[in-house]
Design a protein around this nucleic acid. Structure first.
Length: 797
RNA sequence: GCCGAAGUGGCGGAAUUGGCAGACGCGCCGGACUCAAAAUCCGGUUCCCUUCGGGGAGUGUGGGUUCAAGUCCCACCUUCGGCACCA
């Protein structure tokens, strides 16, 4: 038999799959019967600002293994691919290269697609989509209109994170330690009119419906953290001089008697009113201005507290104590009510502030957790006291139980060029007017210069901006902001279900039949952002009657990062081996195997060249052994129940369980390697052909090209369509087993015995062993433990 | 500080329900083939002691439960990830 040559084999089968459209799954005619079992296998779509790196090889090979496995275990498998092609990185790359972002992403898409095909991923290419394609973003805009009509999106002036370098607004999720996640520039606070999705209205749905998700606990925990629900109370403090009540949110109503001062955020709307009537007016206004200009990072750091006294006092509803009202920037306007009661004895931050400004501290909870100095509540354990105090507040009209969230509404306005235009017209008479559905898509116009200058580049396209108001016909102006790309990726999985639809984003019945995604795979860096936004979208679509499902991703597998030479591999790091180079040097199959064999795919892993060399060796060995079996007609006997046949069945059972239930991708490879080792030691076994076929069949999801070639040499065809092998339970049972004999818990002997020996016989044989007797030392056996089919443990005095 | 994950040979890791620790691979050592090398094949490879029969220790640390613990319980250490002036 000839030598294993990866390139010949891989080009041959890639051509056959392409020509036979092997992995396309046509949508059924309406009403036609369809396979009961479906599996929607999806990985996060790539961002075409560069080419693929080895991290992508991991993600898409994971999905590929699952897609093959589920197809061969009887499901209709939907496995599409597309490109998240709008967004900043492409635009920044374009600016650097002096090219149009569209040219850059489209060139990258061609290259990415070629690499994907060279890796032999089983993708339904007929469903390919790009989010920058007007045929796609037309429907992003259409969905925006539905959200707008139903009040799920709105405009408000808000303090935003402004990146001075990228000249755009960033979501909270895109700010890391006060710096822009993408370019690293220090983020500034700015007040701007922005578009928001009302995601906070779904905070409880997002939390409660996690119970329906088969997701890693750590991802769910991150989302819980991110939503940050906390229960407490809202309490009204009276300001007599102004005849107003100011609400505060607290998680510790039990400490109400310990409040010794009161703090407003500098941005609080009442601060202006207080300043007007305060003798300290100038001081207050200066402070507010300074606080606003203070770098976001410095303000969040929590060091050195600052603040200013307003000259006013608030009245504590429980004890009528008059406490001074301060303005301080350690209180945030966009959490709770923007005002707090300060309890320096029981809150670290309030404590620091009190120390800095020499304010009184009053202890109201003792070391046993009981209330002191708190009128009729004194002596109660603090958790009971919290309830009692809230009840008292309620009955006196001064407070009520309340819930607060860390989650903010999703601001998605971007002052950049390369994104989906927001289909809105501003009219002096009619206000904010949506573009009528039939005028979609609002095409992203060409502009002279899309360099960010603080005003959105689309504003330059004067002819495009000026448009008659859809309502009154008077001249209006188009919205010149574009959408965050996370909007594009919040519904793409639905479009895949019906990607060519020209009348709707997708046919609801088709989408309902494929959704939810059964196996979603992607990086843990999207644990909060993309995965929360997509969940939110799905819930709104459900309530708008556009989908039956409330969760988009039933099962999520978060893959680890791949490092090379200790550095995280991303589009920012150069010098790493590229997927194309690996395929060139080792072949697609060896590359695919090596990335999955490194270790558990949900943990970070270091990629080394020696791994792929080992896989190349394994494949050569497999090629030679299977070739020998295929050429040896005498090895073709019916599989008996010999050792090799049993090994093969056990390997099937292990691989099936690992892939289907345990989501473990590296151990099936080890199991198959063991079987190959067994086969190499018994090439003339009557079950040799069966073992060879089993090996080839089980390795197919990982190394589909070489598997297909060997399958053909074994005299069969179209392995990718063959049913996944099934382990025969009769072959899993051994008729002998190795009995382990322990004395006082230490292994002293082991030997094979028939599987059907009764327990007393097992004990008798154990005692007979000379090695065991040496350790028994003639002592009295006080206890005998027998574990069927495993061991005997003799406990002596 | 709060939440989450993880600590096993020289390295990546396996051990699924408490029952033989170290599967599989990498690396290394030895051997075969070769004029030689590469490739390939065969064997060995947790550590310590050994009279070569075997013996002892061992899964981050210290305790505990159990006939039996990598696995369960308690306390702690370290690393990684997330959140954090969020009241």
């Amino acid at each position: 038999m000839d030598r294993y040559d990866a390139h010949t084999v891989e080009t041959k089968w890639q051509r056959i799959w392409d020509e036979s459209r092997a992995f396309e799954v046509p949508n059924p005619e309406p009403g036609a019967p369809r396979n009961e079992r479906k599996s929607y296998v999806l990985e996060m779509l790539p961002y075409p600002s560069g080419t693929l790196h080895i991290g992508h090889v991991l993600v898409y090979t994971l999905g590929d293994v699952l897609a093959h496995f589920y197809r061969r275990t009887g499901s209709d498998v939907l496995r599409p691919m597309g490109y998240d092609s709008f967004g900043l990185p492409a635009e920044n790359a374009a600016l650097k290269e002096g090219e149009h972002p569209r040219d850059i992403v489209e060139r990258n898409i061609v290259s990415i697609r070629r690499t994907m095909k060279r890796l032999g991923w089983a993708i339904d290419w007929s469903r390919e989509l790009s989010t920058h394609d007007p045929e796609y973003y037309r429907w992003t805009q259409w969905l925006f209109l539905k959200f707008f009509e139903a009040g799920h999106t709105y405009r408000k002036a808000a303090l935003v994170n402004w990146c001075p370098n990228d000249q755009t607004v960033l979501a909270n999720e895109q700010v890391r330690d006060g710096h822009c996640e993408r370019c690293g520039a220090e983020v500034e606070a700015r007040k701007l009119e922005q578009w928001f999705f009302r995601i906070t209205a779904y905070a409880d749905s997002l939390l409660d419906e996690m119970k329906d998700l088969d997701w890693p606990e750590r991802v769910l925990a991150m989302q819980r953290n991110w939503i940050g629900r906390s229960e407490g109370a809202e309490v009204l403090f009276r300001v007599d001089e102004l005849d107003i009540d100011i609400p505060v949110f607290t998680t510790r109503p039990d400490t109400l008697f310990g409040a010794t001062f009161f703090v407003l955020a500098p941005e609080h709307p009442l601060v202006d009113r207080l300043a007007e009537q305060s003798p300290n007016a100038d001081e207050i206004r200066t402070y507010v201005r300074k606080a606003g200009a203070r770098p976001v990072e410095e303000r969040a750091a929590g060091t050195d507290k600052t603040g200013v006294f307003t000259g006013f006092f608030a009245t504590n509803p429980v004890n009528d104590a008059r406490i001074p009202i301060w303005v301080a920037d350690y209180v945030l306007m966009d959490y709770g009510t923007g005002a707090i009661m300060a309890v320096p004895a029981h809150d670290e931050r309030d404590g620091e502030f009190a120390e800095r400004f020499d304010l009184p501290v009053k202890v109201v909870i003792d070391d046993d957790g009981k209330l002191v100095d708190s009128a009729q509540f004194a002596g109660l354990p603090h958790d009971e006291a919290a309830k009692a105090i809230v009840e008292w507040l309620g009955s006196h009209g001064r407070g009520r139980p309340a819930v607060s969230y860390r989650l903010r509404d999703w601001g998605y306005s971007r002052q950049r060029y390369w994104g989906c235009p927001i289909p809105i017209v501003y009219c002096d008479d009619c206000g904010i007017v949506p573009v009528p559905e039939e005028e979609l898509p609002v095409i992203l116009p060409e502009v002279e210069d899309y360099k960010p200058k603080g005003i959105p580049p689309l504003a330059q396209a004067e002819d495009w901006v000026r448009v008659p108001c859809p309502q009154c016909g008077k001249e209006g102006r188009r919205e010149v902001e574009t959408m965050d790309t996370f909007v594009d990726s919040s519904w793409y999985f639905l479009r895949y279900c019906d990607p060519k639809n020209e009348d709707a984003p997708y046919d609801r019945e088709l989408a309902d039949s494929w959704m939810p995604v059964d196996h979603y795979t992607g990086g843990l860096d999207h644990s909060t952002v993309h995965l929360i936004y997509a969940r939110y979208f799905q819930k709104v679509l459900n309530e708008l009657g556009l989908s039956s499902h409330r969760e988009p991703f039933k099962r999520f597998f978060g893959n680890g990062f791949v490092t090379q030479g200790g550095a995280k591999i991303s589009k920012r790091v150069g010098g790493a081996a590229t997927p194309d180079e690996l395929v060139e040097s080792y072949g697609a199959d060896a590359t695919r195997l090596s990335i999955l064999f490194i270790g558990p795919a949900d943990q970070d892993m270091e990629w080394t060249p020696s791994g792929v060399e080992g896989m190349q060796r394994f494949l050569r060995r497999l090629w030679r052994l299977v070739g020998e079996v295929a050429d040896n007609s005498s090895a073709g006997g019916a599989p008996d129940d010999g050792a090799l046949a049993r090994r093969a069945h056990r390997t099937i059972a292990r691989a099936t369980d690992d892939l289907g239930r345990r989501q473990q991708f590296h151990t099936p490879i080890a199991a198959v390697m063991e079987l190959v080792n067994d086969l190499s030691k018994a090439p003339d076994d009557p079950a040799a052909r069966f073992a060879a076929e089993t090996t080839v069949s089980l390795i197919q999801p990982y190394a589909p090209h070489v598997a297909e070639e060997l399958w053909e040499r074994l005299g069969h065809e179209r392995l990718w369509e063959q049913p996944w092998p099934q382990a025969d339970p009769a072959f899993l049972e051994e008729d002998t087993f190795e009995l382990v004999v322990q004395v006082n818990g230490k292994v002293r002997d082991r030997f094979r015995v028939p599987a059907d020996l009764p327990e007393d016989e097992l004990v008798a044989r154990a005692k007979e062993s000379p090695k065991v007797q040496a350790h028994l030392n003639g002592g009295e056996i006080r206890q005998t433990i027998v574990v069927p089919r495993k061991l005997v443990n003799l406990v002596v005095g």
